[in-house]
C-alpha cells in the first residue's frame, strides 16, 4: 500500500524515467550474455554484409578527417557496413566503444584517444567475443594481446627526426650542437615512443646534445610560446637544432626563432625538423626553413588499416600486429612525398 501510494505521488516525469530505466536494465540483462554477432574469427569468408563499428578520430581533427575519408569508402565499396562512432573527445570515445560492443558488430576498429580508459572496454569486447582492431597508437600493455593492431611506427619517426637534425647540422659543418625538443603529450605512448627512437639515434652522435625537452601537448600555439621562451633562455647561439614532434609544432618553432632574431636554415641557421608530414611542412622544406619531416600521413595508414580489415574478413590471417612503414623526408626527396603529405 505504501509503495503504491508512493508511486502515485511521483511526478509523471519521474515515472517515465523509472520506466525507461527498467526497460534499459531488462534489455541490458537479456542482451548481456549473447555474443552471436561477433566472434574471434571473421566468421564466413567475404566482406559482403559484414559490419564494422568505427570508433576512430573525429572529423574535427585534420588527420582523422583524411583517415576517415580514405578508410570508410574503401570498406563500403567492398560491401562492408561501417557504423560511424568517431569522436575526438576521450570520454565520448569510451561511451562510443561501449555502444559498439552493444551493437555486436563483426569487428570494432578503434583509435585510442586515452589508452587507460579504454582498457575496460577492450576487456568487455573480448568477453563478448567481439574482435577489436586498434590503429595508429598502441594500446595499454595490459590488453596488448587482446587486440589486433595496425600501428604507426613511432620509434621510426623519432629516429628519422634525429637523423634529420644530425644530417642538417653536419651539412653545416657543425661537429657539435645543442638541440631542443618540443613533444606531443608526454604521457601518451606516441610521444614516449618517438622520444625513445630519437634518443637512441642521437646516442650514436653524443656531440649533439639535447639541452631541453618540453611538453607541447600537440598544440601549435603552446609549442610556439615554449619555443619563444627557450630562445630567450638559451639565445640564438645556444640552440643549433630543434625537433617539433609534428610539422604544425615545428613551424611555430621556426616563427619563434625568426622573431627572436635567430637565422633559420641555410648554411648557419637553426636546423628544424618536424614529423607527421603536412602540406605546410612540405612547403617549408621547399622554402628551406624546415630541414625535414617524416611521414605518418593519414592516407597511408588508412589504406593499410582498410587492407588489414579486408584480409581479416577474407580469413587470410593477417599478423596480430602490423607497423606502417614510415619514411624520412628532406629536400632531397620532398617531391616524391609532396602529394602523399599534402592531404591533411
Amino acid at each position: 500500500m505504501i509503495h503504491s501510494d508512493l508511486i502515485r505521488r511521483l511526478p509523471a516525469s519521474m515515472k517515465l524515467a523509472a520506466a525507461l530505466a527498467v526497460v534499459l536494465l531488462v534489455t541490458a540483462a537479456c542482451g548481456g550474455g549473447s555474443s552471436s554477432g561477433g566472434g574471434d574469427t571473421a566468421g564466413a569468408a567475404g566482406l559482403e554484409g559484414k559490419t564494422v563499428n568505427f570508433v576512430g578520430y573525429g572529423k574535427d581533427n585534420p588527420w582523422g578527417a583524411y583517415f576517415n575519408g580514405v578508410f570508410v569508402p574503401k570498406l563500403e565499396s567492398q560491401g562492408v557496413k561501417v557504423v560511424d562512432l568517431t569522436t575526438m573527445d576521450p570520454g565520448t570515445a569510451v561511451t562510443n566503444f561501449n555502444q559498439a560492443i552493444s551493437n555486436k558488430p563483426d569487428l570494432i576498429v578503434a583509435a585510442l584517444l586515452d589508452t587507460s580508459s579504454t582498457v575496460v572496454p577492450i576487456k568487455k569486447a573480448k568477453q563478448a567475443g567481439i574482435p577489436v582492431l586498434v590503429f595508429d597508437g598502441r594500446p595499454d600493455p595490459s590488453v596488448d594481446a587482446d587486440v589486433m593492431q595496425v600501428l604507426s611506427d613511432s620509434e621510426a619517426l623519432g629516429t628519422a627526426a634525429a637523423q634529420n637534425l644530425v644530417e642538417g647540422l653536419k651539412a653545416q659543418g657543425r661537429n657539435s650542437g645543442n638541440l631542443i625538443a618540443i613533444t606531443g603529450t608526454k604521457s601518451g605512448f606516441a610521444a614516449q615512443d618517438r622520444m625513445k627512437g630519437f634518443d637512441a639515434e642521437l646516442a650514436k652522435t653524443p656531440e649533439y646534445k639535447v639541452v631541453d625537452i618540453q611538453d607541447g601537448n600537440w598544440d601549435p600555439t603552446l609549442s610556439g610560446k615554449i619555443a619563444t621562451q627557450l630562445f630567450a633562455k638559451y639565445g640564438c647561439s645556444g640552440i643549433q637544432g630543434a625537433y617539433g614532434m609534428a610539422d604544425y609544432q615545428a613551424l611555430p618553432i621556426v616563427a619563434a626563432a625568426k622573431q627572436a632574431g635567430c637565422p633559420v636554415g641555410g648554411k648557419t641557421g637553426l636546423v628544424v625538423t618536424g614529423s607527421n608530414c603536412f602540406k605546410v611542412g612540405i612547403d617549408a622544406i621547399k622554402a628551406g626553413t624546415l630541414y625535414g619531416t617524416a611521414t605518418e600521413d593519414p592516407g597511408t595508414i588508412a589504406e593499410q588499416t582498410a587492407d588489414y580489415v579486408i584480409r581479416y574478413f577474407n580469413q587470410q590471417n593477417p599478423p596480430a600486429k602490423e607497423l606502417v612503414k614510415e619514411e624520412r623526408v628532406t629536400a632531397e626527396n620532398v617531391a616524391q612525398f609532396a602529394e602523399q603529405c599534402s592531404k591533411a
Binding site: 581533427n61 601549435p220 600555439t221 603552446l222 613551424l251 611555430p252 616563427a255
Partner: peptide, 17 residues
Amino acid sequence: FTAAFNTSANVNLGGTL
C-alpha cells in the same frame, strides 16, 4: 596573428585560449 605565427589553421587553432 595566431594563424600567421602557426602558418596554418584548423579547428584546433584556438587551443586553450
